[in-house]
Design a binder for these strands. Sequence first.
DNA 1: ATTTTAGTAATACGACCGTCTGATAATGGA
DNA 2: TCCATTATCAGACGGTCGTATTACTAAAAT
Lengths: 216, 216
Amino acid sequence: MAYFVIVPVMLDIGGIFSFNHVQESFMGTKGEGNRQRIITAADDLFYRRGYNQTSFQDISDATGIPRGNFYYYFKTKDEILHAVVDGRLDELSALLSKIESETDNPRERLLMFSNMLEDNRDNVIQSGCPFGTLSSELAKDDPQLHEKSTQIFAVLRHWIKQQFVALGLTNADDLALDLLARLQGVTVIACAFKDVDYIKRSHQQIKDWINTNTLN
Amino acid sequence: MAYFVIVPVMLDIGGIFSFNHVQESFMGTKGEGNRQRIITAADDLFYRRGYNQTSFQDISDATGIPRGNFYYYFKTKDEILHAVVDGRLDELSALLSKIESETDNPRERLLMFSNMLEDNRDNVIQSGCPFGTLSSELAKDDPQLHEKSTQIFAVLRHWIKQQFVALGLTNADDLALDLLARLQGVTVIACAFKDVDYIKRSHQQIKDWINTNTLN
DNA sequence: ATTTTAGTAATACGACCGTCTGATAATGGA
DNA sequence: TCCATTATCAGACGGTCGTATTACTAAAAT
């Protein structure tokens, strides 16, 4: 029942993933700087206002780059989204690599990962989870865009699963989905009620859940 | 830290809520029929495509009512959203009343309520939760619209809490939020991965959770 | 020195947006 | 019958959308 086909290739050895398929014609050139500025601004706006509610004009205003120039860097708005998602994938990979470098203990890794929730709680209250809200929004748009946004969840799912696998758990994939679902549920409810305290309480519950599922 | 102020008045006695504040000038008239058709079509489109991605033209196409007529029934698009949310609140109240009429046992009530997840699983896979996705979308728009959408969660929260209260649980409100969060988390992940089986599995987990929290 | 390319700036394009208007048709009580 | 109310209709309004094209500058390559 696998719906999406494109799954990012993951190099678990060394924990280094790479999704930043920068067009080589832009490598190291001056234009690459502007391209990156567009991506950075779009990333922020897509998160805070949503993909569909962000116009080229908004990005233009945020960067100072004339709206007409965007076509030079990206043929369509879709392409900007792809670049933004690739950027988020890179950031995520860097974060996961950092976690992996700090401890070999899967339980501690999962706990560190779960801290993402509380570290970003102010943003979560305002705009929800950057991965979850994007996925939910794009589910109602073009299936291709939704598929792209789901790559982020696919990476997280795989990484979390690997931690459970390392602990010898047979239902590692189910547990990975459960952890993701818990995090998503908390963000949706906390954002809906603008309730910071609920994040704190739930984060503790999630840490407890991780501990009970990893201590054997 | 309560952020939103407007809380719907709930008449728990008899389990009958009422949010359908129909403008009396429309009561029983012919125009009320068209008004309702607009709301019904908008409700469906807001769910499947999102609020911002639904245009007056879309609603016009779906109903056959000329776009220009909408101003007669609703001054702004916001008003349509309000009417749609009120409609959903009425439907929800009817559902909860039905559950209340079928059993006095809070545990059974909560279990019946949780069936909503599986009953709508096909829609959930495609478009997510109609309450959750609306809330997440509008969190990035006007705060007033978001507040309106949150009324639905507020009703659910209150009703679920009452079931736990009836069981003598002191942390009833926390449990209510937890149940809502679980449901939301499942829908987000299931929709992201287009995974029907995950809904089935998670629904069973949720029912188990309800049982362990209500059997004393 | 000349040609090619990378990048900038400004703007035109058609389509569509939510909103609003003015005119008309139907309705029903006086 | 008259008239006010209720309802319907087509279309214009200014604005913004994503997209596309043009003309231009500057640097690099030949």
